[in-house]
Design a protein around this nucleic acid. Sequence first.
RNA 1: GCGCGGGUGGUCGAGGGGUAAGAUGCCGGCCUGCCAAGCCGGUGACGCGGGUUCGAAUCCCGCCCCGCGCACCA
Length: 495
Amino acid sequence: MTITLEELVSLCKRRGIIFPSSEIYGGFAGFFDYGPVGVEIRKNLLDWWWDFFVRQRDDVLGLYPAIIMNPRVWIASGHVERFIDWIVECKNCHGLYRADELLEEKGIKITDYSPEALSKLIKEHNVRCPSCGGELSEPRKFNLMMETYIGPIKDETSIAYLRPETAQAMFVNFKLYVTYARNRLPFGIAAFGKVFRNEISPRGFIFRCREFEIAEIEYFIDPERANDCPYFHEVDKIIVKIWTKETQKKGEEPKEMSIGDAYNDGVFSNMWHAYWVGKSLEWFSQIGISLEHLRVREHLETELAHYALQTFDIEYYFPFMGWKEIEGIANRTDYDLKHHMKFSKEKLYVPLSGRKVIPHCIEPSWGVERTFFAVITEAYTKTSDGRVFLKLHPKLAPYIAGVYPLLSREPFITKAREVHKLLKKKFTCYLDVSGSIGRRYARADEIGVSFGITIDHQTLEDDTVTIRFRDTREQIRVKISDLVKTIEELIEKWE
RNA sequence: GCGCGGGUGGUCGAGGGGUAAGAUGCCGGCCUGCCAAGCCGGUGACGCGGGUUCGAAUCCCGCCCCGCGCACCA
């Protein structure tokens, strides 16, 4: 049965997954708090990401960078120029427009982007509101980067920015990481953490937040060996819907093809770019998101970021809002390193034998909330008889096991406590004594608890318990002494 | 940010100038030999601020928040 956004939002709040922040004060648009269940799932998701992309590889190094950096970083990166716009407001209809865009649309050349100059040009050319023809206000500062003040004096010179991405920290620390990676290429840096963007209108539950978590890799390659990826065989057979900019412009549907074929057709900017798209799909598939519900969409020229040569979004099909981006994979070329070389005067290259190489950079960038949202949406299952469960992989589940006395009385409760004590050393689990056994199973199913461990009459006779499977409701009986081992095997063998 | 529609216990949801339904959840008790059973008891709400009025959850104004469309979304 199809899921609605209302059902999911309600479940997330009711069961402590994720909900609007500051609710007793009416909430605060674009900010969310993870509850007791959500905080576990989120941690599992990030741990899995880290394991897959850092620990299981020998070419990606971790970084956990500061949120606030020297403001010059954001000047060098182009974010100050690109993120701070001068906006004019129509005095009649109150529509907001970027001053530079209005002028450029009229073919007016801008040489000075200061507010005074923009204002002068608007008046000289009598530029008016494009929708109602009304008079326009003076340009006002509109900043998509959040600002704060560092030090005791609050003035223009003490402004610092809350990062809108973690990527810059990886470029800024590049020199150190070349050393840590011992002067080789390719290598990558991985980081995750909170980022902040002053979105005009946060919407779609946790889809567009003002504070959110990002997980990114900057993968540095030798531009002379951009089509030499030794791992490509790991991903080239993956088949997915790919929507190139050409097919989008022709109004055609995305084409299902393998990553290998798409690469051979020249879809990707280079082989490493294709590889990282494939590797991302492999991870999504492992965490339980069906490739059927994913597609790879290339950015049109008009939507490319200022640093990007080519970008692919990995989009997930949310039943209640359609295809939406959950990850972007950009080829940032040497844009960032070159800009930081220019602004910092540092030499940012990798010394290879006989060559000083400024690498190009492939950047997979995941929205953690968006991925979390997709995982929950994908896991949400409603049977025809109204039973609801989250079909989460045990590695993502908030709890591996719930422990239940069949009847809410002694001696079952004491026995259940013993089993709980045994399990909680090894797995996330909890004891639930309250309500009928069916009610406790239902409560657990709704938050995706993998297994139900039930203490029944037979337990008291022979020290066996039943393990109930969330998705099928089937049960097997095992000895308490084998319980830990059995659960470990079940997790290990999970498809 | 603009326009439209909304905001009632944790969740869902009736009502709409004078005592705030119902359902569900949750807690306690009884019962219970496996999938939200039953019985008894309990818990808990009109987004915030101002105005009109003898009296406002209800009418008016402002704000906040949510949804939809537009705009925005490196």
